[in-house]
């Protein structure tokens, strides 16, 4: 069974954390088509969170078309997401990022500076894309 985790210090709303976890798990293949997500009650007991949080997350996932609720049975992963990353490519991207991070660290960038740089570059890329 899939297991959720919650970070109560991250500032990300709990329901969004659940949504992200399912998305990521599907993307890298920890969750496959037809897999059952935890029942709301199971997730609630696992995490000690409000049931509405879980159902809200599942509704959003359903809205995105990622999962498919079958009344009385549970919620199932509906299909592979639009952007799937084959594990090999995922591993390659990861290695590249690792190399880049080591370089950045060697150049004296701390975690905050890396985060800031990432945010700036990403915004510029989006602006380019929009233009």
């Amino acid at each position: 069974m899939f297991i959720f985790q919650l970070d109560s210090t991250s500032g990300v709303p709990p329901y969004l954390q659940l949504v992200h976890q399912v998305r990521q798990a599907v993307m890298v293949g920890y969750l496959r088509e037809g897999d059952r997500l935890p029942l709301i009650r199971e997730a609630v007991e696992q995490l000690a969170i409000n049931p509405n949080t879980v159902s809200k997350a599942y509704r959003q996932l359903e809205h995105e078309g990622l999962v498919d609720p079958r009344p009385g049975v549970g919620t199932f992963v509906a299909r592979a997401p639009d952007v799937t990353v084959p594990p090999a490519q995922y591993a390659k991207l990861r290695r590249g990022l690792e190399r880049w991070l080591r370089e950045a660290e060697a150049a004296g960038l701390d975690e905050e500076a890396v985060g800031a740089l990432l945010a700036v570059v990403r915004r510029e890329l989006t602006e380019e894309g929009a233009a």
């Binding site: 919650l6 109560s8 709990p14 609630v44 007991e45 995490l47 000690a48 409000n50 949080t53």
Partner: peptide, 27 residues
């Protein structure tokens, strides 16, 4: 966990007081 499990199962209304906002945010 027990409390929220029961809420999910029974549709119980819960009124609770607390100092701990971080813990509350989840529940």
């Amino acid at each position: 966990q027990v409390l929220m499990g029961t809420v999910a199962g029974e549709g119980l209304t819960v009124l609770l007081s607390s100092h701990n906002i971080a813990e509350l945010e989840r529940v």
